[in-house]
């Protein structure tokens, strides 16, 4: 049986595997994002993002990625896409908005790319 060596820096282009290394790195960020399941937490974040970052002890890299709402930077800082989706949701950003941002495309162009794969 093949024993696959998992590494967050995979040979798959444009892909970071969320493994133990990334889980260690991103715990505070992901824990903050997990809290956004609650509407009260989402309101608290919007009222004072910096205080909320400190409450969850985010590091500077994570704070800056949150301020910039930069998904690739959030992933590099250890964010897991399922929890980041809850962060994006606060700003009404859906998976196509997030996809467009990461691929450097307009949302319309990204949606078109998805449709074309059905042809």
């Amino acid at each position: 049986m093949e024993i696959t060596e998992f590494d967050s820096h995979t040979s798959i282009p444009g892909t970071t595997l969320f493994d133990g290394k990334m889980a260690m790195k991103g715990y505070a960020l992901n824990k903050m994002c997990f809290s956004f399941n609650s509407a009260e937490a989402r309101e608290e974040y919007l009222a004072d993002p910096e205080a909320y970052h400190d409450k969850f002890k985010l590091n500077e890299e994570q704070k800056q990625a949150c301020r910039d709402k930069n998904v690739l930077a959030l992933i590099a800082a250890g964010g897991n896409i399922y929890y980041l989706a809850k962060f994006a949701g606060i700003f009404k950003l859906g998976v196509q908005d997030v996809g467009a941002q990461q691929t450097g495309m307009s949302v319309e162009a990204f949606k078109e790319k998805l449709l074309r794969q059905g042809d």
């Binding site: 282009p13 444009g14 892909t15 992933i75 990204f110 790319k113």
Partner: peptide
């Protein structure tokens, strides 16, 4: 499907 990374939008029929 792939939601994350520069490869977001990957689909493989």
């Amino acid at each position: 499907h792939q939601l994350d990374g520069e490869r977001a939008g990957h689909i493989n029929r």
